[in-house]
Simulated scan of single mutants.
Amino acid sequence: MPQLDKTPDEYQKLVKKAHPSDSKFRNFFSAYIVGGLICVLGEIITQSLVAQGMPLEKAGPLMSVSMITIGGLLTGLGIYDNIAQYSGAGTIVPITGFANAIVAPAMEYRQDGYVLGLGAKMYSVAGPVLTYGMLAAFIIGIIKLIVI
């Protein structure tokens, strides 16, 4: 076994030199820009639907469905992961991040079959979020029913 002739301080300097730099400003800026662009796309879809005569009350939900579809499609094609690697949290916060959280585990376990793979693992990431979200909505609904 070769003997290392480096002191702990010299070794730490080598590790720091080899480690890629992590710019918090760049991470914040890229997340802000990409997340904002995703939201702008959603607003463009909404305004396009309203311009075609659809009421805003119907255009909003249709935009959400469209954004979820786009996010799921980009995840299935492997594009969303590349965008997420560049922008980090900028892709998690918008509704497209929800689509990615559903589709990514499904893609990973699709070789295990439709029931035991796709069906069982699809909600492995988003399942707890959905469960606690529904539980919170139920509790708030009960409180509102009692108070009002």
Results as ranks from 00 to 15, higher is better:
84 A>L: 03
98 F>V: 15
76 G>H: 12
104 A>F: 06
95 I>T: 11
88 G>Q: 05
85 Q>N: 15
101 A>R: 05
105 P>D: 05
81 D>F: 12
103 V>D: 03
78 G>A: 10
92 I>R: 07
80 Y>C: 01
90 G>N: 08
102 I>Y: 00
84 A>W: 01
94 P>K: 15
84 A>K: 05
80 Y>N: 01
73 L>Y: 06
74 L>V: 08
93 V>N: 06
107 M>W: 11
101 A>H: 01
92 I>W: 02
101 A>K: 05
92 I>D: 06
74 L>K: 04
94 P>I: 15
99 A>L: 13
96 T>I: 11
81 D>A: 12
83 I>H: 07
76 G>A: 11
92 I>L: 13
82 N>S: 10
87 S>P: 11
89 A>D: 09
73 L>I: 06
100 N>I: 05
82 N>F: 13
79 I>M: 07
81 D>P: 00
96 T>S: 08
91 T>E: 02
100 N>Y: 12
83 I>P: 04
73 L>R: 00
74 L>M: 13
104 A>W: 01
92 I>F: 09
106 A>M: 11
79 I>F: 14
86 Y>S: 04
93 V>C: 05
83 I>D: 02
94 P>V: 15
94 P>A: 15
80 Y>S: 00
74 L>N: 05
91 T>L: 04
105 P>G: 09
108 E>W: 10
93 V>E: 04
83 I>Y: 10
83 I>R: 03
91 T>Q: 04
96 T>Q: 03
87 S>W: 14
93 V>S: 04
108 E>M: 13
79 I>W: 13
100 N>Q: 14
102 I>H: 01
87 S>R: 06
81 D>L: 10
84 A>M: 04
80 Y>Q: 00
105 P>C: 11
82 N>Q: 11
77 L>S: 09
98 F>E: 13
105 P>K: 11
78 G>V: 04
74 L>A: 11
97 G>N: 08
87 S>G: 12
98 F>S: 15
97 G>V: 09
88 G>T: 02
86 Y>M: 07
106 A>Y: 00
107 M>F: 12
84 A>C: 03
82 N>T: 11
95 I>R: 04
107 M>A: 09
104 A>E: 08
105 P>M: 10
98 F>D: 12
96 T>H: 02
94 P>R: 15
75 T>V: 02
104 A>T: 01
75 T>P: 01
86 Y>T: 09
75 T>K: 01
91 T>I: 04
90 G>F: 11
108 E>Q: 14
77 L>Y: 15
98 F>C: 14
85 Q>Y: 15
76 G>N: 12
104 A>G: 03
99 A>G: 14
89 A>V: 14
85 Q>V: 08
